[in-house]
């Protein structure tokens, strides 16, 4: 009976529900777990609302990359058909996803918010060449949505707001906006309003006051509940 004794726990638990009473398993190919809001996934190269590319080919992302997985070359904009506002644009942009560690330093380094990271993290390659994303693959399409490559597992809705939750400190590429904290305009989405606490010191103070009021209200509420119990 020694063997069966060893299985006592197994058989005892076999037909019982879990402690929470729910099934914890996520059936991955059929459903995905919700992603963390600031998850770093596959990159996206963004465009302005007028379709101009945001990348100016400054190579700061390549310089800051600890894994050396980004290759950028800038070139002068063609005189009549500018690719990006300003003098230069990135005419080569490649990311090697067999080196990228998704640290987000490129996003922080980018002065024009050209490169951001989406939430897409379900992808795998059968060929080394597939893992090197070129500019064509990284750049958003005409609706401002990331391209869906055959080896990536996009689900409906996942290609929206691929640049959300980014540091909103850039002056939108517009001289008149210099020094103001706001999102840069983006193809397909326009200009997002800054989050609370991102709009400057006055806003910070207002936000803090609001939070304090909320906390006070909550404390009162908790007090009432305790009274009810007694």
């Amino acid at each position: 009976m020694g063997v069966l004794d060893g299985f006592a726990v197994t058989f005892g638990k076999l037909f019982k529900r879990s402690a929470s009473g729910t099934t914890v398993t996520t059936n991955y190919p059929d459903e995905k777990r919700p992603k963390a809001l600031r998850l770093h996934g596959r990159h996206v190269l963004n465009k302005y609302e007028d379709g101009m590319e945001k990348c100016i080919g400054c190579e700061l992302c390549a310089g800051v990359c600890p894994a050396r997985c980004i290759y950028v070359r800038g070139a002068d904009n063609p005189v009549d058909e500018s690719v990006s506002p300003g003098e230069r644009y990135g005419y080569v942009y490649e990311i090697n996803y067999l080196r990228c560690i998704h640290c987000d330093l490129c996003v922080e380094a980018c002065p024009t918010e050209a490169i951001t990271e989406s939430k897409l993290f379900e992808f795998s390659f059968t060929n080394r060449a597939d893992a090197i994303y070129t500019k064509d693959e990284l750049l958003v399409d005409d609706d401002g949505r990331p391209r869906h490559l055959p080896w990536e597992d996009w689900r409906p809705g996942e290609d929206e707001n691929t640049s959300a939750w980014m540091r909103a400190t850039s002056p939108s590429g517009d001289v008149q906006h210099t020094g103001r904290v706001e999102w840069s305009a983006e193809l397909g989405y326009g200009v997002r309003t800054a989050e609370r606490g991102q709009r400057g010191e006055a806003d910070d103070a207002a936000f803090a006051a609001e939070q304090a009021a909320l906390a006070a209200a909550h404390a009162d509420h908790g007090h009432d509940e305790n009274d009810g119990h007694h």
């Binding site: 991955y28 777990r33 560690i101 998704h102 993290f121 379900e122 795998s124 059968t126």
Partner: peptide, 15 residues
């Protein structure tokens, strides 16, 4: 098959 990521999440591995 190559799974990218540092580290790849369980879903990337399952992909």
């Amino acid at each position: 098959v190559y799974a990218p990521g540092c580290p790849p999440g369980p879903e990337t591995l399952m992909h």
